[in-house]
Amino acid sequence: MSNLEQGDAITPSRIAVITRAAVAEVRQAPLLMLIVFVPLVIVLEQTSPQAHTLLFAMSVCAIVPLAMLLSRATEAVSARTGDAVGGLLNATLGNLTELVISLAALPAGQYLLVKASLAGAIVTNTLFMLGGAFLFGGLKHHVQEFNRVNARFQACLLFLATVAIMVPSIISDVDQTSVVSQKLSLGLAVLLIAVYAMGMLFSLKTHRELFASASDAEEGHSSWPLTVSIVILVVVTLFVALISEIFVGSVQGAADRLGMTPAFVGFIVVALVGGAAEMTTAFSAARANRLDLSVGIALGSAAQIALFVAPILVIVSYFLGPEPMSLQFWPGAVTMMLIATMAATFLSNGGRGVWYMGVMALAVYAIFGLTLFLLPPAVPS
């Protein structure tokens, strides 16, 4: 696709070039052949909506090639805009899946599902994605450097959001009617959105020089044209959101058959599949010695969920939900989010990455996953 020029007209010769380029992409990444599962899972969901286990398996197969396409397109865009903007772009598009899923659950009043998916996404992005990037990048490169100013900035934003989530949970014992918690959550939602907006202004405008990449990227395969990349980003993101919604609708039935607990499904399975696109980009960027992009995606995505997605859902619940949703999470979720934030702060403090740092982050995530699989945490009524 690198042979295409942005101003070319759509002609038979250009279509032939696009076809050859598509075939070349499939040869380089055979997993892209799984793209055939995208229409298949959509048709199956319409014809056999009760086939939960089959829908679950086919949804996973469909998300994999979509994630790879999203990864390639994001890399092409970030190569022209810089890793800071590229990380923000990928985090935003990746979190669109969680936002769409939550918006679908709000009218039904499934607030527990919404909160579980949000908390699980924060923990998964902070520990699994960041740890995997350190591990995969470190196995190829002895020591990798990244901009620790950017990493500290994202970690501080995440810590602020965790504190805001802790407060409604702390006062739950004295707030028997939940009225105070709802009002407090609404005020905190507005505050967090304002802080996030000012953070974007700080990192992308007034002090953007502080967030420059600290490492040189390796020369890889040629990038797609910017126009093609943007179109692919939009189209693939829509399909990811659609397939993810089908996945969430079938995952509970499949979980019952496979013996997975609801807590494990919400925190681990849904979060991993929902973040597949971001993880693909983060891991491949780390292998290409672009750890700045990987750290920006992992921590930026977690911070964006906590500072923007969760507050937006609180506000939207006043219009779509049967009652307002609060930021009150159960103690187990708050504890895991706080530990994940502390781990991200410690790992990003030095501005250098090695593979064993990834092992430690993944070990913490494995501890959480094993605990949730065997003993689900108590949840609020």
Rank of each mutant, 00 (worst) to 15 (best):
P107L: 12
L112A: 15
R148Q: 13
M325F: 08
I42Y: 06
G321W: 12
R72V: 03
F202K: 02
R152D: 11
G132S: 08
N125W: 09
M342I: 15
A29Y: 06
P380K: 10
E245F: 14
I170T: 09
F211G: 07
F56G: 02
R290Y: 08
R148Y: 13
I230A: 14
G131H: 05
V38M: 02
L374H: 11
L66N: 02
M198Q: 12
S169W: 07
M166D: 08
S222F: 00
A363I: 06
I18W: 10
I18Q: 10
K140G: 06
L118K: 10
I312N: 03
S381N: 13
S48N: 12
T177N: 14
F128Y: 12
G350H: 11
V248D: 04
V190G: 04
T371F: 04
T335K: 09
P30W: 05
T280K: 01
A67P: 01
L158C: 09
A91M: 09
L191S: 05
P12S: 12
V179D: 11
A255N: 01
L188F: 15
M200E: 10
L44T: 07
L44A: 12
L89E: 01
W330H: 14
Q6C: 00
A310L: 15
F37W: 13
G358V: 08
I170M: 13
H221D: 13
V64I: 15
P49Q: 09
M33R: 07
L112C: 04
M357H: 14
Y356P: 00
E323F: 13
I305G: 06
T124V: 04
A151I: 03
Q50N: 12
E323W: 09
K140C: 03
T11M: 07
V38A: 02
P262D: 08
L113E: 06
A277P: 04
V123F: 07
Q28Y: 07
H207Q: 08
A73L: 03
M1C: 02
M337A: 10
S2L: 01
S229L: 01
P377V: 10
G138Q: 08
I42L: 15
V195K: 01
F319A: 15
T126N: 10
T92Q: 00
R352A: 11
V41M: 04
A73E: 02
N95Y: 07
G187I: 07
V174M: 08
K115R: 15
V38E: 01
S117A: 15
L103F: 13
Q50I: 08
A79V: 02
I315V: 14
I193N: 06
A302P: 10
E245W: 14
A306Q: 15
L96S: 14
A333T: 08
A286W: 06
S102F: 06
S117H: 04
I232P: 01
L66F: 02
S381M: 06
V334R: 09
Q6I: 00
A76F: 00
L106P: 12
G199I: 04
G120P: 05
L160N: 05
A214P: 14
R20L: 11
L299R: 09
T335R: 10
L372M: 14
T92K: 01
A62G: 00
V379D: 11
A105K: 15
P377R: 06
N289E: 12
I35N: 01
A217K: 14
L313Y: 04
T92I: 11
S222N: 05
L191P: 00
L362D: 01
